[in-house]
Design a protein around this nucleic acid. Structure first.
Length: 746
DNA sequence: GACCTGCTGCGGTCTG
């Protein structure tokens, strides 16, 4: 293969492209192709392999894929879509449509947006004369298969390329299982399976992504990883102390009407002061971690603008806000005429186009390198400008009553550990999705509907071959089908000739509009003001007439509520409390992150990016670590509890806690290990010694002690033994780690 | 269990 890294390689790649595309490139004023684009062109046009492209957000991945693909399909005559582009977000489809529109028009290749909000007329047109490129969501593919199976075959089965954007978003979670299953089903209806082109952000494990992209032949996937072009990083970690006995670190600031008595200031007030001072005048993103923190911080920032008599430029952005409000803010960011800071959850993490921002701030210590990198990718995108990151920590004030978990300052230590790993360019691999059984049930219902009935054997072969459900064997599958046919579930029934068909409940489930997605959505209140929708609140949120609420960065009073339509009519009001959205816990931490935290405790160096307070917090954490002699001790008693320091990631820690439950001990988990209540060291040691002997620990036995083992949209239809069996398989390594871990402790 | 993501087809009304 040629080496396209050289100038002549770039040139050679360019000349492989269709003349009309070369012209389009000249018209764009590009002086040359990016290296990753040249390599992709060669890979797509000079082989028949699947291709995985891993590169940062602004590297031009879309063009890298589509320039050679359009070249390849330029003279195609067959009917049906030539290219399927699958995206996790409608907004991304709209962005890509704009980027591809002009290019494909010059090639006379049609492009159609195919998602729930796309115009019906365009879809109808494409249905009549399917050709070119379809930009589609997984759920719209599902809908097509279930509602119009004949059309689905006609439109999808002759595709030559399937491009999957944001592959990293599909490596984790049930939606990834869903897409992988849809890919299998599309292949099964095709005479010649389409080549798969995966586009991904920088990911930790390319082999894992290749296995997801082509489970039948991961070795054959060509992996193209862009050379790191990370800009200079300017970074600060700032520490803040919460007042003692604070029960709500996200409470709304004492409102405008409360003037006179100075409200008790909490950490978020000081953080807002700093954000207000540093971010005004530029575009920025502030990641709050939860919708509640986002609303509370946005509220504070707006009040500061009002008090200073300057126009507000801080606005909240999260999944409960109405689409209109969110799009207005995205547009304002992209437009760049007015300085704008979005205070957001993870909504602005994926690739929706908002232009480059001056800085990124994060409230709370990060837990995942993958997501921190993705966030950081939003800044420093213009050549020569640095990435700017500020991390704001909140730690409790230490009093007489404080426990050792507070004194160890784990948030501060974790922040330092995350930054160290960021500088080492570590990214964690994706964790396995526990929703296998639930998602398989979804696909069973879908295939039966698509085919108008199918026998068990071909159904098994279609769904459970190499791919998302390969861990389900023939007997597990038979058991699952039998369970779905019981009168408690009534999803399916079997005709005398063996054909599986939908039963009463299955019929009802598939008919519903909410069937197409494999994830759930809970019922919600809709907030409206003057007929305009602001967004939604969870139905569990207690509301009453004249109640006050902070939402969408402003304060409201509830004028009226309609139980039938689940609508709250609100009006502006100076008071308000921040609604609680969901209870909190946190995303899982990787083994390596926790190991790095231990390394931070063990060393003495003080990173220069810590402010004075954060340095103090780091020193406090290290002092506590040394006082407890945690460098060579793992069991620490406190009051009537025992802390067991495991120094492993969330998965191993959770499994260890289940193993303790098996031994009759209730324990709580945290970043550094587990805490067992009401036990003495003398009682705990023999139990750990017993666990240390259990080298043949039966995973299924441990599984019996795991709470909420059935997960996913169809968890209630999952048979017990299948749930336990799959859990045991997915946690095998962590279970094997229990005995050696216990051995070190005992 | 932090956060996020998605959605048919029909029948009705309105507009040019």
């Amino acid at each position: 293969m040629s080496s396209p890294a050289s100038a002549s390689g770039l040139e050679a790649a360019y000349h492989r492209l269709h003349p009309k595309i070369r012209r389009w490139i000249r018209d764009q004023g590009w002086d040359e192709l990016r290296e990753i684009q040249a390599r992709t062109i060669v890979a797509v046009l000079e082989s028949d392999r699947d291709v995985l492209i891993a590169a940062s957000t602004a590297a031009g991945k879309t063009e890298a894929a589509f320039l050679p693909i359009l070249t390849s399909i330029a003279d195609r005559k067959a009917s049906g879509f030539a290219v399927l582009y699958i995206s996790p977000l409608k907004a991304l489809i709209n962005d890509q449509f704009r980027r591809l529109e002009e290019l494909s028009e010059s090639m006379e290749i049609p492009v159609v947006k195919w998602h729930g909000d796309a115009p019906q007329s365009e879809k109808k047109k494409a249905m009549a004369k399917p050709d070119g490129i379809a930009l589609i969501t997984p759920e719209s593919i599902e809908a097509m298969l279930v509602r119009r199976p004949a059309d689905a075959r006609r439109l999808l089965s002759s595709a030559e390329f399937i491009v999957i954007d944001e592959v990293h978003a599909f490596l984790q979670g049930p939606r990834g299982l869903h897409v992988a299953s849809l890919l299998r089903r599309i292949d099964a209806m095709s005479e010649r399976p389409a080549r798969r082109i995966g586009l991904s952000a920088t990911i930790g494990d390319l082999d894992q992504a290749a296995a997801w992209l082509r489970p039948t032949d991961p070795q054959h996937v060509e992996r193209l990883k862009a050379k790191s072009d990370a800009p200079e990083l300017r970074l600060q970690v700032r520490g803040y102390i919460e007042p003692p006995d604070l029960d709500d670190p996200d409470h709304a600031e004492g409102g405008a009407e409360g003037a006179g008595d100075m409200p008790h200031r909490i950490a978020l007030d000081y953080i807002a002061d700093h954000l207000f001072e540093k971010l005004r005048g530029e575009n920025n993103l502030v990641f709050g971690g939860s919708r509640r923190t986002v609303e509370s911080a946005a509220d504070r920032l707006r009040l500061r603008s009002e008090k200073s008599n300057v126009p507000n430029e801080f606005y909240p952005h999260h999944g409960s806000l109405s689409k209109v409000l969110r799009e207005e803010l995205e547009e304002r960011l992209k437009d760049g005429k007015l300085p704008t800071t979005a205070v957001c959850t993870s909504t602005l993490e994926l690739g929706v186009d908002i232009g480059s921002v001056k800085s990124v701030a994060q409230i709370g210590a990060p837990r995942s390198l993958a997501s921190l990198r993705q966030r950081l990718g939003r800044t420093g995108r213009r050549r020569g400008t640095p990435s700017v990151l500020r991390i704001y920590l909140r730690e409790p004030e230490i009093t007489q009553k404080s426990g050792i978990m507070d004194r160890l300052r784990p948030n501060t230590i974790r922040s330092v550990a995350v930054v160290q790993l960021l500088l080492k360019e570590f990214v964690e691999e994706a964790g396995a999705a526990p929703e296998i059984a639930s998602t398989l049930i979804h696909q069973v219902l879908s295939v039966i509907t698509e085919r108008g009935g199918i026998r068990p054997k071909p159904l098994f072969d279609l769904l459970c071959g190499p791919g998302p459900f390969s861990s389900v064997g023939p007997s597990d599958f038979a058991n699952l089908l039998r369970h779905l046919a019981t009168k408690e579930v009534r999803f399916i029934e079997q005709a005398p000739d063996g054909t599986l068909m939908l039963a009463q409940e299955g019929e009802k489930t598939v008919q519903s509009r909410s069937f197409f997605a494999v994830f759930e959505s809970s019922e919600e209140w809709r907030l409206t003001v003057g007929g305009r929708s602001l967004g939604t609140l969870p139905i569990t949120y207690p509301v009453h007439k004249d109640g006050l609420v902070v939402f969408a960065g402003q304060r409201w009073i509830i004028h009226d509520l309609d139980e039938q339509t689940k609508t709250l009519v609100v009006a502006p009001h100076p008071g308000g409390v921040v609604p609680r959205f969901e209870p909190s816990a946190g995303e899982p931490a990787h083994d390596r992150l926790i190991a790095e935290m231990r390394a931070v405790y063990l060393t003495d160096d003080i990173p220069p990016y810590l402010d004075e307070k954060a340095q103090e917090l780091l020193a406090e954490g290290r002092t506590t670590f040394r006082l407890l002699r945690l460098d060579h001790r793992s069991l620490v008693s406190e009051d009537r509890d025992m802390h067991v320091f495991l120094w492993k990631g969330s998965q191993v820690t959770a499994v260890f806690s289940a193993a303790l439950a098996m031994a009759g001990l209730a324990s709580g988990v945290h970043d550094l290990g587990v805490s067992v209540s009401k036990i003495k060291e003398l009682e705990l040691r023999p139990i750990l010694a017993t666990l240390a002997q259990m080298h043949e620990l039966d995973p299924a036995d441990v599984a019996d002690f795991v709470a909420n083992i059935k997960v996913g949209k169809f968890r209630e239809a999952v048979p017990d033994d299948l749930a336990r069996g799959l859990w045991a398989q997915q946690n095998r390594k962590a279970i094997l780690a229990v005995a050696p871990c216990a051995g070190l402790l005992a």
